[in-house]
Amino acid sequence: MDLSLHARIRAGDPEAFREIFKDHAQTVYRHAVRTTGDWAASQDVVSLTFLEAWRIRENLRDEGDTPRPWLMGIATNVLRNTARAGRRHERALARSPVKEAVPDFADELIGRITDGEQLAAAHAVLAQLRRSEQEVFTLCVWSGLSYAEAAQALGVPVGTVRSRLARARSRLRKLAEQEMKKRRADQRRTEPVRDSGQVRGGRTEAARLNKEQNR
């Protein structure tokens, strides 16, 4: 009998797991990068997501044609736990004595500067939303899940996904406008001021040189 992919996953078929990893690992990774703003941490999120998927594989239900919503729900839980662990780590570091700073590996990161800056700006704005709004926005807008898939991933009704996404988009528009105004103001403050005296000084200097040459 031909078993469905979901049934094969529940049965612990290694080939089925390799198949879903190949098809969905990049989706989980991109979602993690956009949520955390951290490439290295996102690789850990991918590993933890698929390890947890293997551990709870018997919980996968026969809903839809793809296990993507199930995987993204696991990834969302992993991201929640990672964020909590990160906050605990930061508090522990704050209590520790200050150590000598480790130099940055600029050569390794130079190719990522532009993308990193853009991602950091987007992440800074997104971080101002409630966690529930962040999760819906990243799943539906950045990772491309449908309302039904996001609802399945988060374990909430479809109507809740719709209302959270509407609030997230409304708040993000306002926050993005504020961020753009702030960036423009910062840019104006850092622009060099032209010295009008340079032109007059240049003409005076030229006149003086002409007089000396005509002597």
Rank of each mutant, 00 (worst) to 15 (best):
D2K: 08
L5Q: 03
R8G: 11
I9Y: 07
R10Q: 14
A11C: 03
A11T: 07
G12M: 12
D13E: 11
D13H: 00
P14C: 08
I20A: 01
K22H: 13
D23P: 00
D23K: 07
D23S: 06
H24F: 15
Y29M: 05
H31L: 15
G37P: 02
W39T: 13
A40E: 15
A41V: 11
V45N: 05
S47L: 08
L48G: 08
T49Y: 14
L51C: 07
R55V: 02
R57G: 15
N59E: 15
R61E: 02
P69A: 10
W70F: 09
L71K: 10
L71E: 09
N77G: 12
V78D: 06
L79V: 13
N81V: 03
A83S: 15
R84G: 10
A85T: 04
R87C: 08
R87K: 09
E90D: 15
E90G: 06
R95S: 14
S96W: 01
A101W: 13
V102H: 08
D107T: 12
G111A: 00
G111D: 04
R112I: 05
G116I: 00
L119R: 10
A122P: 01
V125Y: 01
L129W: 06
Q134M: 01
L139W: 06
S143N: 08
G144V: 04
L145E: 08
A148Q: 07
E149Q: 13
Q152H: 07
G155H: 03
V156L: 07
V156Q: 12
V156M: 08
V158F: 12
R162S: 09
L165A: 11
A168F: 02
A168K: 01
S170G: 12
S170Q: 14
R171S: 05
R171Q: 09
R173G: 07
K174G: 13
K174N: 12
L175M: 03
A176C: 08
R183F: 00
A185F: 02
D186A: 09
D186M: 04
Q187K: 03
R188S: 09
E191K: 11
P192M: 00
V193P: 01
V193Q: 15
R194S: 05
Q198V: 05
Q198H: 10
G202A: 10
G202K: 07
T204Y: 10
E205A: 13
N210V: 12
N210M: 15
N214A: 11
